[in-house]
Design a protein around this nucleic acid. Structure first.
Lengths: 192, 192
DNA sequence: GTCTATAGAAAGATAGAC
DNA sequence: GTCTATCTTTCTATAGAC
């Protein structure tokens, strides 16, 4: 008695999580449907009972990755003010994040990939990016010294810092530049 | 009398420039050798008289794009000190750059693409990235108030700013965030 | 050096049995 | 819902004529 609604939901979730892993690690084009399905413990024929196309899966996977990703996870760190920023930045601008083992941020891992894609994919990225800014803004704007410019600059630096770290071949430099971004972002968000 | 050494050089250069256009606009995987060759006015069979593989072309194209790209072009703007920074930042963090019509920077347009590739490709990216930092460092380090952290933060923000702008679907937001990055980078590089 | 033609592999998507 | 089998397209790379 498989094939219940619940069974289907479970399969769908497994596919989604495999897709997140593959897409974020290898990018959209290099990831095949067969690979995702195999990783989810199914065969590729079953795919189309859950999603209408690879493109649709990409959108869903991106959303799922953001919801369960590193950025979101560090948002509720129980702290306030500058300690809160420190927690978020520390969790994001981090070599473990760059290595990608544990729920990386799709905004940083897929930037370039997204730019060349159809508008519904870019739409999703835009929404998630706005969300990221909103979360930081919410905390920062209590402080009248912080401007919207500060927020945009910080998120660009976070995404850029992680993306560049991932692209380079020099772990020492990667660590160094992440640290520099963290320090500078902290200064921007907490200076007088 | 084609087929002279000079003729070959010219063909090679045309292929290289087509490759830069295609790779930067569409990414590595979405670009076919046929497409590049057609854009260069040749057929795809001729490709292997110039390059041994698509991967080799990618490396050469990336190097060529950096040498003739927007960042390098704005390095020699004839100015000094804070005016020099302003010129470089203005030329880079710019909507025209994001649209990609005129020799965009491979560091910003290919970040995510590079991360998933073989080590020789990442090696090349690393070298170019270090070059970018060196150029800015050379000007900034005259000023004892500037640290290496400042440089790394600024380059990450430049690359991140352009990459994110390109990924989002909202031109107004793109322009806004580029402006924010420019303002903030300027502040980092010229504040007391 | 460049062309046409093709080999060989991979990928997205569909068909039909269970 | 999931499986196996297959259609179809696309792509890298090679072969051989000029």
């Amino acid at each position: 008695m498989p094939y219940t609604a619940e069974h289907k939901q479970q399969s769908r979730l497994r596919i989604l999580e495999s897709a997140v892993r593959c897409f974020l690690q290898q990018g959209y084009e290099r990831t095949g449907i067969s690979e995702i399905m195999q990783d989810a413990g199914l065969t590729h024929g079953a795919f189309y009972a859950h999603f209408s196309s690879k493109g649709e899966l990409y959108i869903e996977a991106m959303t799922h990755a953001a919801k369960n990703g590193r950025f979101t996870a560090h948002l509720k760190n129980g702290k306030k003010g500058s300690a809160w920023f420190q927690g978020v930045l520390e969790g994001y601008l981090n070599l473990d994040h760059v290595e990608g083992d544990e729920s990386p941020c799709p905004l940083a891992f897929l930037v370039t990939d997204i730019a060349t894609r159809e508008s519904d994919v870019k739409q999703t990225y835009t929404r998630l990016y706005k969300g990221m800014n909103r979360y930081i803004s919410r905390q920062a704007m209590d402080d009248s010294k912080r401007t919207k410019d500060d927020i945009y600059a910080v998120t660009a630096m976070m995404i850029g810092g992680v993306a560049v770290s991932r692209a380079i071949n020099d772990p020492k430099l990667a660590k160094r530049l992440l640290h520099s971004c963290k320090q500078t972002a902290e200064k921007i968000l907490t200076s007088d």
